[in-house]
C-alpha cells in the first residue's frame, strides 16, 4: 500500500489556511450574534402571538358568522403552520452534532422524513384552508370596500399565493434532496 502512503503524505503536506486571531474574533462575534438572534426571534414570536390574540379578541365582537369563519380559517391555518415550523426547529436543534456519525445520520434522516410528511400533507392542507378562509371573506370585502381596493386585494392575494407556493416548492425540493442523499448513502453503508 505504498501508493496510498504516498497520497497520505501529499494530503498531510498540502498548504492549508491556519487559525488567525482575527478569524477567532470573527468566530466569537458570529457565536454571540447567533445567540442574540435566537433571543430576538423569541421576542418577535411573543409579539406576533400577542398581536394575533389581541386581533382575535377584537374581531370576536363581530356577530357575522361568515366573517368569523373566514378569519378563523385563515388565522387557524397560519397558527398550525407556525406551530409545526417551531416544532421542526426545536427538533432540528435537538439533533446532537457530537454523536457518532451513524446515529447522527439516522437522526437527520428521521428529521427529514418528518419534514416530508409535513410538506406533503400538512403544508398543502394549511394552504388550502387559508385560501378557503380568504374566499369566504371575499363577499364581505366586496360589500364593504371600494371596487378598486377590492380588486387590489384580490390581485395581491393571488400574487402572494403564487410567490409563497414557489418559495415552499423550493424549500421542499431542497429538503427532499437532502433526504434522498442521506438514504442513498444509507444504502451504500448497508451494501
Amino acid at each position: 500500500m505504498n501508493n496510498f502512503e504516498d497520497l497520505q503524505n501529499k494530503w498531510q503536506n498540502q498548504t492549508t489556511v491556519s487559525a488567525t486571531d482575527y478569524g477567532f474574533k470573527s468566530l466569537l462575534k458570529s457565536v454571540k450574534a447567533i445567540e442574540q438572534k435566537q433571543q430576538t426571534g423569541n421576542v418577535v414570536l411573543t409579539i406576533t402571538i400577542i398581536i394575533l390574540v389581541a386581533f382575535l379578541l377584537y374581531v370576536s365582537g363581530y356577530k357575522s358568522t361568515t366573517f368569523l369563519l373566514g378569519i378563523g380559517l385563515m388565522i387557524g391555518s397560519l397558527v398550525v403552520r407556525i406551530a409545526i415550523e417551531l416544532y421542526s426547529l426545536k427538533r432540528l436543534r435537538s439533533i446532537n452534532f457530537s454523536k457518532e456519525s451513524n446515529t447522527f445520520r439516522n437522526d437527520l434522516t428521521s428529521y427529514y422524513s418528518f419534514r416530508k410528511y409535513t410538506h406533503f400533507i400538512i403544508t398543502p392542507l394549511a394552504l388550502v384552508v387559508y385560501t378557503v378562509g380568504f374566499i369566504v371573506l371575499l363577499p364581505l370585502f366586496e360589500a364593504s370596500l371600494s371596487h378598486g381596493f377590492y380588486i387590489y386585494i384580490l390581485c395581491s392575494s393571488v400574487v402572494f399565493l403564487v410567490v409563497f407556493s414557489v418559495f415552499l416548492y423550493k424549500q421542499i425540493k431542497i429538503e427532499l434532496n437532502k433526504l434522498k442523499q442521506l438514504q442513498l448513502d444509507d444504502e451504500a453503508i448497508n451494501l
Binding site: 452534532f97 457530537s98 454523536k99 457518532e100 456519525s101 447522527f104 445520520r105 437527520l108 431542497i174 434532496n177 437532502k178 442523499q181 442521506l182
Partner: peptide, 16 residues
Amino acid sequence: TWIYRICVNTCLAEIR
C-alpha cells in the same frame, strides 16, 4: 474525536 465527530456531521448535514 469529539471535534472530528462534529466536523464530519456538520459536513454531512451540508451535503446538498
